[in-house]
Design a protein around this nucleic acid. Structure first.
Lengths: 228, 228
DNA sequence: CTGTACTTTTTGATTAATCAAAATAAAACC
DNA sequence: GGTTTTATTTTGATTAATCAAAAAGTACAG
């Protein structure tokens, strides 16, 4: 039985592989994501390699083994189901769910998770729009792209918000930039490093344009719904 | 912020004070209840005393300070609300709630607990019949007595089951010996160390008599409803 | 190819929680 | 009242996770 620290490292390695589309995660990246000193990460990584959860290539980085990926997906499942429960049932705000889920995911039993899943009606995705892995570790692939890959005139729908920062999530909520909402890209200014979008005329949101930095827009995953 | 181990020791000391109606808890009692060696308990107790959560009298035992009691009641509140949630909402069996609650109570936030409380409609007691302390640490006193203090002919109502052993709880459930049920004591055999009860004629349970050991009956708290 | 900057690993220490076993104190027993 | 039993404390060691700071390796800029 892995400790909750081990679970957290494995989940973090998975997330770094995913988010940065890398097959290997460097120590600096891992130690920063975990909020520990590099030496600590090195020590832990050796331990994880012994447990056969990752493959460790000294001075290069780490990658998950099949067993590690399985554990990571289990943790992601727990996290996303808990977040969904906190929002849908207990009325948490989207910006508040992450913190509590992060603690709970290491304390819940399999039984608890399966009961929550059933109670929620087996939701396919969490409130951020991220797909929830099945109990067997299958996860739906979605062909969404970061908003900053879109061009002026593209019509899109928000798929997921790939950022746990409460302030960011609050801002997105205020602008109704939440999963499912339809938008049009009305400007992309590479020089200024900003993008401007407004709600699709047919959607119920405000039509006031909203400008965001490229950095933030890379955390907003969208599905193209056509190009004007 | 106390670690979950500290929380567990404080809760255990509170429970030992309560269950055994003692004002001081010996080290042996504490170490056994915690499932650690006596030396470990001594070391921890010194630490708890430094944190002003208990008063430690070497070679005598420990007792909670006001601050310790406050923390203990907070933990009891968490435990009982979580148990209630697991049974009422997620459909856990009474014999299964304890184990999961024991882990969760150290991982939940105050916000989570207050939301659960509201979701459950501010229940006064958990599924064992134990009163749930308020957020301010007030707990309802109940004038219940252990079943083994009753005499033949007493009519009683089950108030709480003061035992977390799943097998015991399952047995009680099978016999409908659950909080709220009305019974008559039809025999008390001090020599054999057993007591026999049957459901009150007016109640919906079976009228087949049921015999239990004195040991077990001391864990069944009842409220007298009159003496024939 | 050489030096500076950056990343990674190593080393030595620390904290929380634990155990086993020896030492000590208190209680109980005849 | 001395002996035995039982409870408690002490001591020394261990494990998991961490940090700070020194050492070692890698990268690339000129």
């Amino acid at each position: 039985m892995p400790t909750s620290t081990v679970e957290q490292y494995i989940k973090t390695i998975y997330q770094q592989e995913e988010r940065c589309a890398q097959d290997i995660v460097q120590m600096k990246q891992l130690s920063e994501a975990m909020g520990v000193t590099p030496g600590t990460a090195t020590a832990m990584v050796k331990h994880l390699a012994e447990r056969k959860l990752i493959r460790y290539e000294p001075r290069k980085g780490v990658r998950l083994t099949a067993g590690g990926r399985e554990l990571a997906l289990l943790m992601v499942r727990r996290h996303r189901l808990i977040e969904t429960f906190l929002e849908n049932v207990l009325g948490y705000d989207l910006s508040e769910v992450h913190e509590d889920a992060e603690k709970l995911e290491h304390a819940v039993s399999d039984k608890f998770i399966e009961r929550i899943d059933a109670y929620l009606g087996f939701p396919p995705a969490d409130p951020h729009g991220d797909p929830i892995p099945s109990a067997e570790g299958h996860i739906a692939r979605r062909d969404s792209v970061p908003l900053d890959h879109c061009e002026t005139g593209d019509t899109i729908r928000v798929a997921r918000l790939r950022n746990d920062d409460p302030a960011f999530l609050l801002l997105m909520k205020e602008q109704h930039l939440t999963p499912g909402e339809a938008f049009v890209v009305i400007d992309k200014n590479e020089t200024a490093g900003t993008m401007t979008v407004r709600h699709d005329a047919r959607s119920r949101g405000p039509i006031t344009p909203f400008t965001i930095s490229m950095g933030n827009s890379s955390r907003i995953m969208v599905e193209p719904t056509g190009t004007k």
